[in-house]
Design a protein around this nucleic acid. Structure first.
Length: 491
RNA sequence: CGGGGUGUAGCGUAGCCCGGUUAUCGCGCCACAUUUGGGAUGUGGAGGUCGCAAGUUCGAAUCUUGCCACCCCGACCA
């Protein structure tokens, strides 16, 4: 663990913000709680999005788009849902401005008040289920497997770049099924899509589990999640997949006729991941020198920095670099040749390290004579002199090594930070001094969970899937328990 | 909404307690030159309603009062 990453929260927050801003991923904007995602950050998001989108389509889903605005009455149709979101909704009340008659600029025109207020979607279940009602009549219309890429707004009290902003980008899948079992299978399938994406692409190991009742999505029967561990010892929910039962079908009266012409409500799921994944990526791998990006998602996988004096040397380097660039591109590697003469090599080295570019190649006149280049890897910060012959292939292997290495590093960090606690004192001490996940017995009661949260600031992150069954006593109440659950302080 | 803190150039800051020339320094920016294998150096230059308003005073970045904004901690949360 690097030196800035300490248990003191302010330091870690500072470090996190600095990295995001200095690496050029995002910045604060003029609007409270909203951020500007800069081109480099957006390129990263596009890479994530493309890969996820591909998996959604491979699993039979289609993309569509639903409105930003939700009539207020829709939101109140599902009781638990409205209760969960009511406190953080932005509301549109008027549709027109006018010049202030007193000359103080522009004001909301009081005559342009909406009959029914519109809610800026905090999530789209309601508007989508209102639409599904007209799309679904028969079992032949099922399953309905839709995803949308969209922005949503949740008026949170406190915000943090990528982790919790007022507006954020995400995808939300909303499916309808004929049977409960099929819907549950879909829920778990999508959870697995997320887990595989986190592990294989983000190089971020996650724990798959199910949420306790307290932490469950508003309106769901069951919320499955992937939980990741950040380098400061706090947990982060990286994705969720909900089994909604028939709650929304009943609220929006979505019924279908089955093969026996029997009428029944459909079974639903919804699942989503957001730009929060970028925050997760930053906190999972970065170090004091900046971002460390997994090669599979890095917008720039290889950067080439020339080192030269004068036109002649530059031309000779250009020639070599152009053919190398071509070879790398043929292997599907994204490469940037930074021959901007207004920045010195040292500046560029530091800059691309900050941006987390996995591999840097430096090439100068001295190297050309020996037919070599200097290859530096971001994850270990090691440098090697490598022959230009067969370089492209070697770089490809190196990128794979880096992907594996940062995954393994994160994996061993996770393994070393899941600790069992059997007494309340031990539990508190672990949270305070070590952090990470604490695996402990819990009596299964919501009020106990609430009490634990109050006393320790830790929440139940999840009950892991395929959890080992063992008899024990609740960490707080001493009541009997038959399995351990994972607690942590979380973002 | 409670508790704490901060507002001085694009960014980061000194000065404020104890009022007094032309508001400090660093980064960045512009020009020129020398440089280029780990964030170059020199010279010159541009850039300020000291958060806003009122008050005290011969004189306010500095003192007083009010307001505003932002940040951190809590409640809320992907």
């Amino acid at each position: 663990m690097s030196k800035v990453i300490t248990s003191r929260e302010e330091d870690y927050s500072q470090w996190y913000n600095d990295i995001i801003i200095k690496a050029g991923l995002a910045d604060y904007s003029a609007v409270r709680g909203c951020m500007v995602i800069k081109p480099y950050g957006f390129a990263l998001w596009e890479n994530m999005r493309d890969q996820l989108d591909k998996r959604f389509k491979e699993t039979g889903h289609q993309n569509a788009y639903f409105p930003l605005f939700i009539p207020k009455s829709f939101l109140s149709k599902e009781a638990a849902h409205v209760e969960g979101f009511a406190k953080e909704c932005a509301v549109v009340t008027h549709y027109r401005l006018k010049n202030d008659p007193d000359g103080n600029g522009i004001i909301v025109d009081p005559d342009a008040k909406l009959e029914e207020e519109l809610i800026v979607r905090p999530t789209s279940e309601t508007i989508i289920w209102n639409t599904y009602k007209t799309w679904i009549q028969s079992y032949r219309d099922l399953p309905l497997l839709i995803n949308q890429w969209a922005n949503v707004v949740r008026w949170e009290m406190r915000t943090r770049l990528f982790l919790r902003t007022t507006e954020f980008l995400w995808q939300e899948g909303h499916t309808a099924h004929a049977t409960s079992q099929e819907a549950i299978e879909e829920t778990i399938q999508m959870l697995n899509v997320y887990a595989e994406f986190a592990e294989e692409w983000m190089a971020m190991p996650v724990i798959k589990g199910v949420k306790s009742v307290n932490e469950r999505f508003a309106g769901a029967e069951d919320t499955y999640c992937i939980e990741a561990l950040m380098q400061d010892g706090k947990a982060l929910q990286a994705g969720t997949s909900h089994f909604l039962g028939q709650n929304f079908a009943k609220a929006f009266d979505v019924k279908f006729s089955d093969k026996e012409n029997k009428l029944d409500y459909v079974w639903a799921t919804s699942w989503g991941v957001s730009t929060r994944l970028i925050g997760a990526l930053v906190m999972a791998h970065s170090d004091d020198d900046g971002l460390v990006l997994p090669p599979k998602l890095a917008p720039i996988q290889v950067v080439i920095v020339p080192i030269f004096k004068g036109e002649e040397q530059k031309n000779a380097i250009d020639e070599k670099v152009h053919s190398l660039q071509k070879e790398l591109k043929q292997l599907g590697i994204s490469v940037k040749y930074d021959d901007d003469d207004s920045r010195r090599p040292g500046w560029k080295f530091a800059e691309y390290e900050m941006k987390g570019v996995p591999v840097r190649i430096a090439i100068g006149a001295r190297d050309l004579e020996k037919n070599v280049v200097e290859v530096a890897r971001r994850d270990t910060k090691t440098k090697e002199t490598v022959s230009l012959d067969g370089l492209a292939g070697n770089i490809q292997n190196l990128l794979n090594d880096i992907q594996d290495n940062i995954y393994n590093k994160a994996q061993s960090y996770l393994n070393n930070n899941i600790t069992e606690a059997d007494t309340w004192d031990e539990f508190l001490q672990l949270l305070e001094e070590k952090g990470g996940f604490v695996s402990a017995h819990w009596d299964g009661k919501a009020e106990t969970e609430e009490k634990i949260k109050e006393l320790s600031k830790a929440t139940i992150r999840c009950i892991p899937l395929d959890n080992k069954q063992e008899d024990g006593k609740c960490i707080l109440t001493g009541e009997p328990s038959k399995e351990r659950v994972l607690f942590a302080r979380a973002y």
